[in-house]
Design a protein around this nucleic acid. Structure first.
Ligand code: SF4
Ligand code: SF4
Lengths: 162, 162
DNA sequence: ATAATAACGGATATAACATATCCGTTATAA
DNA sequence: TTATAACGGATATGTTATATCCGTTATTAT
């Protein structure tokens, strides 16, 4: 199993948006250019974020994306779910009731212990992602980005926003 | 993202093997029949379990699979990893160093905060799966299986093992 | 007004991966 | 000797992820 690559892209983009001066917006085209990503495909992911309200969009020249709410109120989990969708990773197909020993569907109430254990693990995963705010991501990112790159980025965004 | 369906199959099969009388073995053919699964594909998954030592196999008539060690010493995590493989679900592609602001690779030491957060969540997931033993799965399964199905299963396996 | 920008949704095309089958080989028990 | 069964490799099929393309609408700048 492999997680959608778009998750990585989306988190990076949100982190950039979180550092944007208030009132400013960045179009998908610029974000794609900055990370060297396929423009139209990234745009699709940005639209997913927009549908979830994580970012707000504005059309036309000077338009683009900005955060939909403060970075302190966006969890890593929100971004992951926006891209990955809400479906649980483990989906039981009820094989217990198949085959020669299966009995009537009515006899099976709740999902079995296997499914419950898998879902517990998934809940632990989500909980952990829920604890991390975009603001933390942004802050850590800023601290750990090489100085030289920070300067180049600032200059580049300066041009882009002009 | 969707987890391999084989995980569900494999856990169910291991749970059956855990209830097998000592010394007995079940061939993949019988397991597939019992759960109404594609025989050859299930066989592939059983081979994965075998490679990891979770089950031991014996060839020839009367052969098949049995547990490779006591059910108390097999974790749900072991089975999941045997089928799903050891690779982490989140794989960062280092997009931070791409694009116009990227600098030399030497400047990036450890993985960034995004990757670390994603991996922390995955660790939480694995930890949760590591806490569940196959013996618990088996026990819970036995308790929650409808009476009628238990009887049918016992009869069916009685014939199969004869 | 007009032209350029940009989000948006839908329709593709392509690549990657999961699912499933098939085959030949080896080992082993009846 | 025959039948069973695991094993590994090759292949086929289906489904999902990845990526592009198009037409439309909204908005800004000229
Ligand atoms: S609910 Fe449990 S027993 Fe039923 S198919 Fe899902 S995992 Fe198997
Ligand atoms: S290590 Fe972090 S910054 Fe680098 S590509 Fe992975 S997620 Fe992005």
């Amino acid at each position: 199993m492999k997680l959608n690559e778009g998750i990585e892209w989306a988190v990076h983009c949100c982190s950039i948006l979180a550092s944007l001066p208030p009132g400013m917006a960045l179009p998908a085209r610029k974000l794609a250019e900055f990370f060297d990503l396929p423009e139209h495909y990234l745009a699709k992911h940005m639209q997913s974020l927009s549908q979830q309200g994580l970012v707000s969009s504005s059309k036309g020249p000077g338009g683009g994306y900005r955060l939909g709410r403060p970075a302190t109120e966006i969890a890593l989990l929100d971004i992951v779910l926006a891209i990955d969708g809400p479906a649980p990773h483990f989906r039981c197909t009820e094989i217990r009731r198949k085959g020669p020993s299966g009995v009537d569907d009515k006899c099976y109430g709740k999902p079995c212990g296997i499914a419950r254990a898998m879902w517990r693990a998934e809940t632990a995963w989500r909980d952990e992602l829920g604890k991390v705010s975009l603001e933390e991501i942004r802050h850590t990112g800023l601290e750990e980005t090489p100085h030289e790159q920070l300067e180049k980025s600032l200059a580049w965004f300066g041009d882009a926003l002009k």
